[in-house]
Design a protein around this nucleic acid. Structure first.
Lengths: 149, 149
DNA sequence: AACGTTTGCTTGTACGTGCAATCAACTGCG
DNA sequence: CGCAGTTGATTGCACGTACAAGCAAACGTT
């Protein structure tokens, strides 16, 4: 097939994105399964706890949390609702802007997060490692690991 | 436009995967919105048509399609059902193994796929390009584009 | 040939998510 | 002030997906 060499030809974008999709669906499924079975929490719950735990004030505005976990407003409303039911977080009204709501992590939430943390790291690394022998996906994993912000 | 979500400090795999997640959620949402609004089809429908269109026999076994689009069996049963309702595909029994089912693309399915193809490519490239200025995600996009199988 | 096992797909059901509509609270402009 | 427009979050609703159970067909052993 012919490839142009001038302006960034991005027919390769589709191939590159296809590799991301394959990686993504496999790794996320592994992570979700492991977290659910070993710690009884979903991936979105885990990631919410992660962001809340690392927040300097132990809390995050709903929209802020939504942006960080890559979900919409309504999804986060219900996500924090689930965390609240589970005792991992609660909602707190913002005093300066009475429309605003803070999601606040509880001690129990921190404990669950810390317990799940090792599982997450291990499953992620092992899932990524499982591709290193793959002639197509191996280089992609390597490239991702090489990039650092 | 996605600004990098400043994730907490993590070891390299987790940081790398965090970048993938940010990219993935943004790009997929852009693609899904554009395909739905401009062509009336969902992302999974588009990708199914893509695989069926490029199949040398214009057909794929259900499980084969499931693997390619990264979904489970039951999801693909219903996905092909939707394609059938829309007139983009139909199911055909496998003569040699009466348990097996082929999903077969129709002419109308090919036409819709070909119409949507340009949208997909353009939105994908522009979505990826929107990160090139980002100090965290820019290098990741570059790395992904550089990898080729 | 008959039996238990495996394979391929479908159905029942529950859940997480998105979109649109809604409502309350803040903002700005007259 | 007062009123329109905007912002932050929640609710109604519909949809796509996963898991598990179910079912039919193929396979392998004897």
């Amino acid at each position: 097939m012919a490839t142009s060499s001038h302006a960034p030809l991005r027919s390769s974008d589709q191939a590159a994105w296809g590799r991301v999709l394959t990686l993504h669906s496999f790794v996320e499924r592994e992570l979700a399964l492991a977290l659910q079975r070993q710690h009884g929490i979903g991936l979105s719950e885990y990631r919410s706890l992660e962001h809340l735990h690392h927040s300097s004030t132990s809390e995050l505005r709903m929209q802020d949390l939504a942006d960080r976990v890559g979900l919409g407003q309504s999804s986060v409303t219900r996500l924090v609702g689930r965390l609240e039911t589970a005792g991992f977080a609660f909602k707190d009204l913002c005093p300066s802007d009475k429309r605003g709501v803070y999601a606040v992590i509880t001690d129990e939430g921190r404990q669950r997060y810390q317990a799940a943390r090792a599982t997450y790291a291990e499953v992620l690394s092992s899932a990524l490692n499982s591709f290193t022998a793959d002639p197509e996906l191996g280089p992609t994993v390597q490239a991702l690991r090489a990039t650092q912000a």
